[in-house]
């Protein structure tokens, strides 16, 4: 027990002393997750609105597929994209394996089904009078889309925050596609795995606490937006 308390104290000292290495890793994790969420949102939210308001053959199958993909294992995404990005893969000549871009791509693929699915749910839960009101005011398709984005903003923000939480906490993609390169692709989760395996428990614990803090803030935001959306 003493060991754990001493380690915890050392971890807190590292956090308070604003250790440069720790905060560089935290920053890398955050901007990569933000970029992933940005890309996934740009694709997932319009697709969500489109699927919600259109009827087409195979829609039910698509919804079931998206529900399944919500729980997509990160190592499976990492594995498949590794196959694409590796030197002999179809995108090997892009040279993005073991770069932040590779992690961003992987995390965007991971959270796209979350953004897509939650956007469908948000749009399907919208007041049925909303569409009729937009149409009766003479809104074009694009104008209707923008009005829906505005009216559903809180529910959609909840989807974005949920996607961010999933991205920042994942380890499989960051490890397999980023390679855990110090000062370049090392994220909080990959650093925790590495430092723990090296026996640097206090460094890992400090990062773990910061990751928990980020998760806590994300959760607060999620609840805030969900409350506003109701």
């Amino acid at each position: 027990m003493d060991y754990f308390i001493e380690t915890l104290a050392a971890a807190l000292r590292l956090i308070i002393s604003a250790d440069r290495e720790i905060y560089a890793i935290v920053w890398t994790s955050i901007w990569i997750a933000v970029a992933s969420v940005g890309i996934a949102s740009l694709l997932g939210i319009p697709l969500g609105l489109l699927v919600a308001f259109r009827e087409f053959p195979g829609k039910r199958l698509l919804l079931q597929g998206l529900n399944t993909l919500m729980a997509l294992p990160t190592v499976v995404v990492g594995l498949v994209l590794y196959g694409f990005f590796t030197r002999h893969g179809p995108l090997g000549n892009w040279g993005i394996l073991y770069t932040p871009l590779a992690i961003v791509s992987g995390q965007a693929v991971l959270i796209l089904p979350i953004l897509w699915n939650m956007s469908i749910t948000a749009a399907a839960g919208a007041d049925p009078r909303l569409g009729l009101t937009c149409q009766s005011l003479g809104a074009s398709g694009l104008q209707q889309g923008l009005i829906f984005l505005s009216e559903l903003r809180f529910a959609l923000m909840a989807a974005v925050v949920a996607g961010f939480g999933r991205a920042i906490g994942e380890v499989g993609i960051a490890m397999m596609l980023g390679g855990n390169i110090e000062g370049f692709t090392r994220t909080m989760t990959t650093a925790i795995a590495l430092e723990t395996s090296k026996g640097e428990f206090e460094f890992g614990l400090a990062l773990g606490l910061l990751l928990l803090l980020v998760a806590f803030i994300v959760n607060l935001l999620l609840q805030y937006f969900q409350r506003l959306a109701r």
């Binding site: 009729l132 009766s136 003479g138 903003r153």
Partner: peptide
């Protein structure tokens, strides 16, 4: 549609101010 003004039985008002609600149709046009 733009030649018709339609008020539903239970009208939907946007999550915005009264002024913005009234102005939206003019902006759309």
């Amino acid at each position: 549609r733009r030649r018709v003004g339609y008020v539903q039985q239970k009208p939907y008002l946007f999550h915005a101010s009264v002024r913005d609600n009234i102005e939206l149709g003019l902006r759309i046009r």
